[in-house]
């Protein structure tokens, strides 16, 4: 997953299986969570291996696999402009609002 220009370039011999990122939603879960990665020869293979490697302790899951090369990630340097503007809009959070207790649960 590293596209950092200062990172050493890994060798890519012909026999290396490509890298896939794995996302799993457990039976109780609401969204797919990133669990890690694995090497597989194609998408179908990656899905099967993800089941064997990442879901041995869960019942009833949904699995997504994505080639690592297909992931577009935000730049660390952009963090300030991407994320800070939402930091001061505290009125989006329910705790901003004081509701009298006798209104009940809200």
């Amino acid at each position: 997953m590293s596209t950092d220009p200062q990172a050493p370039k890994p060798l890519k011999p012909l026999s290396e299986w490509p890298l896939w990122e794995v996302f799993v939603r457990s039976k109780q879960g609401l969204e797919h969570k990133h669990c890690g990665s694995l090497h597989a020869s194609d998408a179908g293979h990656a899905l099967r291996l993800a089941r064997d490697v990442y879901t041995r302790r869960q019942e009833g899951v949904s699995i997504w696999v994505v080639p690592s090369s297909a992931i577009t990630a935000s730049e660390p340097n952009d963090k300030a402009e991407f994320f800070d503007p939402s930091g001061d809009k505290i009125y989006r959070h329910p705790t901003f609002y004081a509701i009298p207790d006798d209104v009940g649960h809200m």
Binding site: M1, S2, D4, A7, P8, K9, P10, L11, K12, P13, S15, E16, L19, G36, S37, L38, H39, V53
Partner: peptide
């Protein structure tokens, strides 16, 4: 496997 995956994020490959 999890550890090789973690190391690969630093710019090395499993092979």
């Amino acid at each position: 496997l999890y550890l090789y995956s973690a190391a690969e994020t630093l710019g090395t490959s499993r092979d």
